[in-house]
């Protein structure tokens, strides 16, 4: 298996285009094989929110994630970085079983949320996804009004019965997403009419409206300009007081700014997990170092 071979079919094209490997291929290959089934750093924490053990994910015959074991602590922001096609998004989508929507996808291993196996066959994904919300790469508000976008979650989960309560949830969620002042006068206008950054904050507001415990963010800023990105990053910092946040990002600066811990993925394997500061100043793994210094990726 060469370093160029795609592990995640979604990213195949992108990976193929990444021909800019600066490190010598042989060296990397060696490093990758060497570190098989072994993650360096602190994978485990006490009283984890999520505890993942030996997770393997397959798309048909192709394996996208190899033996990942990782704990995610309560109210911590964990960033997942790595080159395209390294399986970080796939891993993230396992945490609220969004991979179920892909027919050929298969997940093995144990993933527990507060000690409950989320891949238990008896488990209902609807309440799971209410506890573990998700924000996607491309802002995807519903083609409905701003109000309806935020009210959708509370409505389908039956969280409120009275209109006033719903109004309150919508206002609180929009305030926490830092969007209230911008949209309070046009709640009935379509959410799709907002700017990209506002749309993404609307998606965050929509997610927190159902008061989840964990928010998964899949490259939430990759479609946004730097100012909107800064706004979202501030928001993440504020939200981290109440929510556990897992963020996948391509921007190492972003990971360094927002997260407490950072996980480095490489070709479907989790290479290193450490305090963010340590990862970016003195990483334990040579591949991590190669990646953060820009020698490939």
């Amino acid at each position: 298996m060469t370093i160029l071979e795609a592990t995640n079919p979604v990213d195949t094209a992108e990976t193929a285009a990444k021909d800019t490997i600066k490190m010598k291929e042989a060296d990397l290959n060696e490093a990758a094989t060497e570190s098989d089934h072994k993650t360096v750093g602190d994978c485990f924490v006490e009283n984890p929110k999520f505890s993942v053990r030996d997770a393997n994910v397959y798309y048909g015959d192709k394996q996208a994630v190899f033996d990942v074991s990782l704990d995610i602590g309560e109210n911590e922001v964990i960033a997942m970085i790595g080159p395209s096609g390294c399986g970080k998004s796939t891993f993230l989508r396992c945490l609220n079983r969004m991979n179920d929507t892909i027919d050929i996808c298969r997940v093995e291993g144990k993933i527990e949320l507060d000690g409950m196996d989320i891949y238990d066959s008896r488990l209902d994904v609807v309440p799971l996804r209410a506890r573990v919300g998700m924000v996607f790469q491309k802002p995807n508000p519903f083609p409905k009004s701003i109000y309806d976008n935020v009210a959708y979650g509370p409505k389908i989960h039956g969280l409120v019965s009275r209109r006033v309560d719903l109004d309150e949830i919508v206002e609180t969620s929009l305030r926490r997403a830092g969007l209230w002042d911008e949209v309070k006068d046009r709640l009935n206008q379509p959410g799709t009419g907002l700017s990209g950054g506002q749309q993404q904050r609307l998606c965050i507001a929509r997610t927190i409206a159902v008061s989840p415990e964990v928010i998964l963010m899949d490259e939430p800023c990759s479609a946004l300009d730097p100012i909107a990105t800064a706004r979202i990053e501030e928001l993440i910092a504020e939200l981290s007081e109440n929510f556990t946040i897992c963020i996948v990002t391509h921007s190492m600066q972003q990971a360094a700014r927002v997260s407490k811990r950072t996980a480095y993925f490489h070709m479907g394997k989790l290479m290193e997990v450490n305090e963010t500061q340590k990862v970016f100043t003195n990483p334990d793994h040579e591949l991590t170092e190669a990646y953060i210094t820009g020698r490939f990726g």
Binding site: N96, M98, T101, V125, V126, P127, L128, R129, A130, G133, M134, F136, K138, N140, P141, F142, P143, Y152, G153, I156, H157, C203, R206, T207, V210
Partner: peptide
């Protein structure tokens, strides 16, 4: 992306289809 958004919110299959 619309389907993902709805499913990610915890909507059931049927709700996703009927609402979105």
């Amino acid at each position: 992306s619309i389907r993902e958004a709805a499913l990610g919110m915890g909507a059931s299959r049927m709700q996703t289809i009927l609402h979105h």
